[in-house]
Design a protein around this nucleic acid. Structure first.
Lengths: 219, 219
DNA sequence: CAACTTATCAAGTATTCGCTTGAATAACAA
DNA sequence: TTGTTATTCAAGCGAATACTTGATAAGTTG
């Protein structure tokens, strides 16, 4: 029956997007691009793979509709395709954490011991009262590409030297790329070691951005 | 660096779930299971592939955390893993429709000409007023496994014979498995041909169920 | 237990995928 | 134009995947 073939063609078309998520390398690139647009070479070195291979994966993600691409002089800058593309990636990531024990195990292995967290609601409230310092510990370019309003940028590497910048009396909240990113975990550990009271925002910038988009703050 | 390896292990673990969505066959099975739990052989014949192959795909989906499995006598009944598994599939499907022209084209090819639709909000309102007949045109077992409250089951095949059951004065709303399912489209066409005023609910049972879960009706 | 149904496993094969290497292309600058 | 940088293309190879066929296992029924 021809209808059967058309139905299969439909599923094949959808699977093109599904394939985008079937490779760990591609997921890593997607995760990086969820923070900020980047060129091919930057992505290659950030993810530790060859340029050619990175380019191929980026093209696959682009063909799957997950990325946009624009030329900027001699560079080609890739960016995540849009809000729904970002949401899809985060949904997959969260679902895998919830349903696959192996993901949880791998996350614990990578992130080390858990540190105390604070959620979006409480952070907003504390920011309103002004009794908390919010620190973005991602690399500076990612901060520049977008960050939580009211945060200050202190990349993890500079944290120790720049400790004096943080007002002593206040609790520090650190955030980074997301729940699977090691920066904020590490930052909180170092702050605690330095005798500061610190917590980690339980999500990261992409999640915050999506939350803002779905419930714009009543200005 | 060991941290780099642990990070890769994390992405590999997530990609296990991603791989579930990389095969058209698996997506078709997932789509069927979004309607109702089923045994391997039913799924095999519904999707037109061999039993052994179906079993393998189901195991892959199960390993990816997307399905639950239980033995029932000599049969093994698979079901979708839970609400977030369902949401993930629908999110992927909708994102692919929004971002890949090929999906839209394939959908148009399969579904034929568009028919007039009605959305959830309007349907709820009309149901409240009682001036609309809601018809579930999926196979009876799927209706039995769950349906919109207030709907009556008239599988597409029986539609013509059972036309007299539908009160003549009222508009008919048909729904089926979802926006990519041909049943409701076809039902509306046949009803129109029979001189009835009919529309298609723009989504299907799984979407309705999720919408209900996220905003439970104020009883 | 034997016969039967349903599902899974195992082995084989064709295809696709992921990565590498080296060449080709595009944009720009001198 | 020529040289430089950033990216993509093309070919090749080993590994993984999808599907088939036939055997095996689990559960039920007579």
């Amino acid at each position: 029956m021809a209808a059967q073939q058309r139905k299969q063609a439909l599923f094949e078309a959808i699977a093109v997007m599904g394939k985008a998520f079937s490779s760990p390398r591609r997921l890593e690139l997607l995760d990086l691009l969820a923070q900020a647009p980047r060129g091919v070479e930057e992505l290659a070195s950030a993810s530790g793979q060859s340029t050619a291979n990175t380019s191929q994966h980026l093209q696959a993600l682009h063909a799957a509709g997950m990325l946009t691409r624009r030329r900027q002089g001699t560079r080609v800058v890739y960016a995540i395709g849009g809000e729904d593309a970002l949401r899809l990636w985060l949904t997959l990531r969260d679902a895998s954490l919830a349903r696959l024990g192996e993901v949880e195990r791998a996350a614990r292995d990578y992130l080390g011991e858990g540190v105390e967290t604070i959620d979006r609601g409480e952070l907003l409230e504390r920011l309103g009262r002004g009794d908390v310092v919010l620190v973005d510990v991602r690399p500076e370019e990612e901060f520049a590409a977008g960050h939580i309003e009211g945060a200050r940028s202190i990349p993890l590497e500079e944290l120790e030297q720049r400790l004096p910048e943080l007002p002593a009396g206040q609790e520090v909240v650190a955030y980074c790329r997301g729940p699977f990113c090691a920066y904020a975990h590490e930052a909180v550990r170092r702050l605690s070691d330095a005798g500061r009271s610190a917590r980690r925002l339980e999500t990261g910038w992409p999640e915050w951005r999506l939350a803002e988009a779905s419930e714009p703050k009543p200005a």
